[in-house]
Design a protein around this nucleic acid. Structure first.
Lengths: 210, 210
DNA sequence: CGGGCAATGTACCAACCAGTACATTGCCTG
DNA sequence: CAGGCAATGTACTGGTTGGTACATTGCCCG
């Protein structure tokens, strides 16, 4: 049964504002984003931004929180339980790569938030220690590999997660400057397979005990 | 002989504007930066920004060009000729780490430029293929290691440079969000030695032939 | 040493932009 | 079905901000 297209729908209005705001903030940064532009791209008006989110900053906070929530959701879908530690770790790294490439808006929001030294993020309670689940997954695979004697024992999960994140975030976040400096396009489809395999290789050969 | 403090000094005025603008743009981003604030932090007035740089964007372009020029200068100081390929590569990675930690303003400018999809950078002729020198250094060490049989032969200099850059840039560029998500401070001095050694370990164990 | 121009300062403007006062309308509940 | 409130629209504002018109001043060169 399709819902009748109501003229008034608080949920839809709020959701639409949030979706458009995510786009605009991610395109232009916090200061660069225009409240009027966000409203214009919506079926509603600027007035509603103030009604639902209090103001530009409140809207940005909601965008940030929602974006992180979405990422956490996506992370939950990952399961490497049936693989051996070596292949599991490779899968982890390469899936993280895919994941980042598929969520460029989110990476851009994170970059923007870092420009502002994380001052907004710090005020969102639900984001505290949000990284834990992702790191637990790494830790699990790492521990399994250590027990089986295939991984070296002197590396922490945090370090592994850091190396993987750094590589995958950089791909997206710095694609324009890095690409220009070296005359290569990190986002070009023909490079994807190689770049994807690269982080797998790096992590596996780093962790493999010899 | 100390120069007399002249009241008028085109060179000094221009340089001061550029230095302050670098700070302000790096602190607040392109849209967030205020022309008036830049002028206020200077011994001169806003008028001079338009006199020397044409406008806000011209000033930003000059900041970007100058920042990249400074980095290229710094890179030239690096010499790993007397070291064996293994130690040279480690030195390369760890020095890059030091270098990025020491030039956070620059990393922030790069992040800002990426938010704007590199549209300003593309218009600066002197930045075309500026990455070449840095990559040549990596290539040299890599080739030496391959010849001596200590490095694997299936990795390109570009890939190595990418992995190192990604890790080092991430440390600085994402310190706020990553630090908050995991309750760790990437910039804390007590973590520096470990984080520095980490990228050395990763690169060396990745490249080492077994 | 004085004319002329580079360099600088002051005061101002018009557009922009986040935010709001006030009116209105549709939907749900009793 | 009607009354009340959540939800929405319109029109406006005051401060901000990039940019400029016009005046002035100090330095260098002939």
């Amino acid at each position: 049964m399709v819902e009748p297209e109501r003229q008034r729908d608080a949920v839809r209005t709020r959701a639409e504002l949030l979706a458009v705001a995510t786009e605009v903030f991610s395109e232009s940064g916090y200061s660069g984003a225009r409240v009027d532009e966000i409203a214009e791209r919506t079926r509603t008006t600027k007035r509603m931004i103030y009604y639902y989110f209090g103001g530009k900053e409140g809207l940005y906070l909601a965008v940030l929180e929602e974006a992180y929530r979405g990422i956490r959701e996506a992370e939950r879908g990952l399961d490497v339980g049936e693989l051996g530690p070596l292949e599991a770790m490779r899968r982890l790294a390469e899936t993280t790569y895919d994941h980042h490439v598929a969520h460029q808006d989110f990476i851009r929001l994170v970059a923007i938030e870092n420009i502002h030294r994380g001052e907004h993020m710090r005020r969102i309670e639900s984001l505290r220690d949000l990284g834990q689940p992702a790191m637990s997954l790494v830790d699990e695979v790492l521990a399994r590999g250590r027990d089986e004697g295939v991984f070296r024992a002197d590396v922490e999960a945090f370090d592994v997660h850091l190396v993987i994140s750094a590589y995958c975030v950089f791909q997206v976040a710095n694609q324009y400057t890095f690409g220009h400096l070296f005359g290569r396009d990190l986002a070009a489809p023909e490079n994807a397979a190689h770049l994807r395999g690269l982080i797998g290789d790096v992590v596996v050969s780093w962790l493999t005990r010899r």
